[in-house]
Design a protein around this nucleic acid. Structure first.
Lengths: 172, 172
DNA sequence: CAATTACGGTACTGTCAAGTTCCGGAACTA
DNA sequence: TAGTTCCGGAACTTGACAGTACCGTAATTG
């Protein structure tokens, strides 16, 4: 991802790119922010009546391919992993919305009495995100509907429907 | 991570480094392989009688700090993320042994009748690894004993002790 | 001790990519 | 049409870093 490539892809001159962004750092920052603008409106979440239905409703073909593009972007960002500013503001920002959404859906499910009130929501709402990330970026296997449903039905819902064996809080 | 730094850290001349490795690529490959040599012998796993005990026995202070060093290495490897050769052989190789160990411990637990035989072991044995990675490299928070036990007690064991909920034929 | 080898250090070369400068031409304006 | 502004493109500068060449010296061997 060189600036020449960026300019070429934009069918623009490098000078023009630098007219709009004063450095590559700013360009990357803005690009990340742009990608982070989530299409998922927090106040318009799916509400199917079951946690399982809500979660499945989140996984649209759109988001699958978007995720894969994000992973390719990550892999190509190379040197920016050193600057923790970017990891925090940019990369972590990718995942935070999903975690927030999961948290909200799970809290609703608790309210409905669908899952145990003593479940560790704070941890559970990071499970999908963590594992999708690991699968996409490390294992480089598709995070598709099959895997997603297996995750929900095989891990997440069983974990949430039971009270946890021992009460444990995690710092946040 | 420049070759000058490597040489300096080794209190050696750059020429000496190049006498042993013909290129940086080979050096990184060998370094990854060396870090991957796991201290956990597969035929000498903990056997405390419970899955919980076995898993907790895996988490030694040694491995915690080693993991954090690995994450720092990852963050510093920058450009190598493009070459999927390295991601597969090197980085993925870090995690595979842990997954294998988890799988073995869980199969034992199934054999003891401790966890449900219908549990999704293949998925479950990736949970700890995925989430430790996410926490260490993305969230940059410590993967310590507190978090680890919360993960085991709040997610993993509850998920495993229950049969999967009905794989209902819900929406498409 | 003398000869050879191995090493640490430093200076050099080549390459690649970020950032700058400049120019010619297109598009808009009067 | 003439003047002004903006853009694409290409050449250039600069810095960082991989890889190389070389030298003085310490260790090794006969």
């Amino acid at each position: 991802m060189t600036m020449d490539m960026v300019a070429a892809r934009a069918k623009a001159g490098k000078a023009t790119v630098y007219r709009r962004w004063s450095s590559k750092v700013e360009l990357v920052r803005d690009s990340l922010a742009w990608m982070n603008r989530t299409h998922l409106e927090l106040d318009n979440l799916p509400d199917t009546g079951t946690l399982r239905g809500d979660l499945l409703a989140l996984l649209k073909p759109r988001s699958i391919e978007e995720d894969e593009r994000k992973y390719r972007v990550f892999a190509g960002m190379g040197s920016f992993w050193q600057h923790s500013e970017f990891v925090e503001a940019g990369i972590a920002g990718f995942f935070e919305p999903w975690i927030v959404i999961n948290r909200e859906l799970m809290h609703r499910a608790v309210g409905r009495g669908e899952i145990s009130a003593s479940a560790d929501i704070e941890l559970a709402c990071e499970v999908i995100t963590s594992m999708s990330y690991f699968r996409g970026l490390i294992q480089r296997k598709p995070f598709d509907k099959r895997y997603f449903t297996a995750l929900i039905d095989g891990i997440l819902l069983p974990a949430l429907k039971n009270p946890k064996p021992s009460p444990n809080a995690v710092d946040q």
